[in-house]
Computed example of a mutant assay.
Amino acid sequence: MQRRSVLQAAALAGLSPLARADAYPSRTVRLIVPFAPGGTTDIIARIVSERMQGLLGQTMVVDNRAGGGGIVGATEIARAAPDGYTLGVATVSTTAANPAINPRISYNPLTDFTPIINIAATPNVIAVHPSFPARDYKGFVAELRKNPAKHSYATSGTGGIGHLQMELYKTLAGVFVLHIPYRGAGPALNDTVAGQVPMIFDNLPSALPFIRDGRLIPIVVAAPQRVAALPNVPTFREIGLEPVNRMAYYGIHGPKGLPREVVDKVNAAVRKAVEMPDVKKRIEDTGSIIIANTPEQFAAQIAAELDVYKKVVAQQKLKLD
């Protein structure tokens, strides 16, 4: 009898994550945010993870791993054990823009992750410091053409969506602005608001509080239509630059090989969280649109976005500095 108990204990200890997935989660879950605190990725992750904790019955710890336009954090997600205890936020920067322009990335965005759910999508915005000599798009582009080597712009990092979209904008608009990369949107915003950098290409949720306070001036947004919070600000489509008019997404994914039971539990928890009125309001108040789709739908979105940015890089001959 004692020998049988020992064998049973050994067998249980040796069960694969797939075989034990029905008990998930039985301990703390780490959610890697591949950017510094304060940016949109961080904001969305914290809003949702707060409620996911109660739904999953375990603590969720947000772990900011900034660097390389999201590459550092994304690489850590890809290398994690496929047991569901290390998940990460998937963004356009980490799964499409950066992989499209950076040949040195060590992960494949289509094969090295398990897509779980796209939480929300959000507009992007070009905003300037109040000291900038223009407060609307017409004056903005006129100033850039008049002084082609004078101004610079901040982004969350080299190869991120802000960098790639701004470089595409520069090419299509025929202007030049120097890129100043940061280790996340938070630090980039701080320096732009402080006037250290005159402009930023950022996700709207992280920039919007500063816009509302008058510490940043919105110039143009990437959105399907004008944003309710910025009714006087045109979209890139309106100014004739449709290729730049793409929104960002914020989803959750894990390393490849994540058990389907884990995927389904996390997907269900996110769906329930974003249905809560307070969570829904907090996300929508940032200017974001809740998506909450299936793993398969999110995987298709990632593949489509990667294809778009690969074509942008090839057509515009974009390269890292």
Rank of each mutant, 00 (worst) to 15 (best):
R30Q: 14
D307T: 10
A142C: 13
S26Q: 12
A100V: 04
Q301Y: 12
P115Y: 07
G184W: 03
Q2Y: 11
S93H: 07
D191F: 11
A314H: 01
A120F: 01
R183S: 12
V227G: 11
G257R: 11
S106W: 01
V193F: 12
E238C: 08
V125H: 03
K272H: 02
G139R: 08
I252T: 00
L230T: 10
L172Q: 03
Q58Y: 04
Q196Y: 10
T75K: 12
N108W: 02
T28N: 08
L178N: 15
V266Q: 09
G160Q: 00
H253T: 00
A36H: 01
N190C: 13
D264L: 14
I211S: 07
P243M: 10
D136G: 08
Q316L: 11
K280G: 07
Q53H: 05
A273T: 05
A10H: 14
E284S: 07
T192K: 00
I101A: 08
H163K: 06
F236C: 02
P234Q: 06
R271N: 12
P181G: 00
V274P: 15
D264F: 10
N64P: 10
H129W: 02
G70T: 02
V266H: 10
I117E: 05
E50V: 14
Y169P: 03
A11L: 15
Q8I: 14
G157I: 00
I217P: 12
K146G: 08
K280V: 09
S206L: 01
P224H: 09
I200R: 10
R51K: 09
M166Q: 15
R30E: 13
A81C: 13
L320W: 05
Q2V: 09
E50W: 12
A9L: 13
R104I: 09
A154Y: 06
E167V: 13
G159T: 06
T114K: 11
A229P: 12
A127Y: 07
P99G: 05
A78S: 14
L204M: 02
V221R: 03
H151E: 12
G195E: 01
R46Y: 05
R20I: 00
A134W: 04
P34I: 03
A149F: 12
L31T: 10
A81Q: 14
D278K: 13
A273W: 01
G67P: 07
F140D: 01
A134Y: 02
S49G: 04
F210M: 00
A304F: 01
R65V: 15
E305V: 15
F210R: 01
A100F: 04
A194N: 08
A19I: 13
T59M: 15
G73F: 00
A292N: 08
